[in-house]
Design a protein around this nucleic acid. Sequence first.
DNA 1: AGAGTAGTGGACCGCGCGGTCAATAACTTT
DNA 2: AAAGTTATTGACCGCGCGGTCCACTACTCT
Lengths: 201, 201
Amino acid sequence: MARPRTFDEAQVLRAVRDQFWNKGYAATSMDDLMQATGLGKGSLYGAFGDKHQLFLKVFDAYCVSSVEAVKKTLEGPDAGALERLRQYLLGVATASAAPSNRRGCLLGRGTAELASEDAQVADRALETFQGLEAAFVRCLEQAKAHGDLAPQADPRKLGAMLLAVMRGLEAVGKAGMDEASLRGMVETAFEGLPAPAKRRR
Amino acid sequence: MARPRTFDEAQVLRAVRDQFWNKGYAATSMDDLMQATGLGKGSLYGAFGDKHQLFLKVFDAYCVSSVEAVKKTLEGPDAGALERLRQYLLGVATASAAPSNRRGCLLGRGTAELASEDAQVADRALETFQGLEAAFVRCLEQAKAHGDLAPQADPRKLGAMLLAVMRGLEAVGKAGMDEASLRGMVETAFEGLPAPAKRRR
DNA sequence: AGAGTAGTGGACCGCGCGGTCAATAACTTT
DNA sequence: AAAGTTATTGACCGCGCGGTCCACTACTCT
């Protein structure tokens, strides 16, 4: 029909995402985005709309892929479910403490900066948090079914609590807290999970 | 010696703090600050330096007073220590869920926006997190001494974990998660604390 | 080949940004 | 009362912001 695009949309969105991720929304200028993507302003506006729409687009994509990634990571048989979750959260702890990851996660950053004044961001973030929680809950249900949690354990409550711990990791990680402390938080939270009654010997 | 100031410094800093708190650092303009404080630009610059210094000043004050406030709130006899901590965190949960508090806490907001690129902010934030953690730990030590925690409980680890939960509350609260969920997270975390052995009857 | 259409790049717009400065005001000291 | 010092105001600066527009290009369709 007409002239085709010369850029790869996914690649451009990745570049945009990284900019917002590194500098935040307000501190990122359209010129930053032009430079990061290599596109002219007209192309960016033509293809994605203004700065706000562009942010929403990458934020959305980030949220979706985050939840998907977590679900995939936690997928597996009932047997190792609890340990999978534990390892996942320990990984988050390590990642949150890494100096290279000082920017934190886009979800946390975007939410902190914009959610209070941008309902769309808040909605998307809430949905994402609930998605993550749901993935945790499923994993905990598997663990319970397999007998790694006490019968009276409430996976929904535990999942919510672990979500809070996870978001907390990111928050304190951004301040530069050391890896051992962050991992310790995860370990301690897991030690508090209701263990099944010990088998008689 | 010379002309005295006509403004109350504490009051001005409070106004500045609220601006940064409501809109974030980058999104707050010097004009916003002029309007909020009622001062001219020259006065602001003369008294406090540039925007960044001004932010650091209010951020510092906020951090100091936050830690102080928590310490004061948690102060008291060994007897009610655990319950005081519980009530405090439940209060944080309720506050974090309140629509009027959607802006979150300045510590969280400032850290998320600036810590990755501003070492001073990161340092201050880390110090503050550690101060909060220390207050929790002290409270947990009291609780342990009073027998509200098991003898093998490690107050330092538990305090760190509760700090993570607390920061998590704020993070998910900003996305608009409901109060019941947030309070549930606190309850669940507390249910996981190592209880003392039940007394024989 | 010509017409039609969508993509591209960058010049351009007006505004509001962070920050400076000089004229003036309000005080203390001698 | 005069001199010295600091606070205050707001005009002013140059720049970089988000956003628009248009001449030009590269393609498809007839």
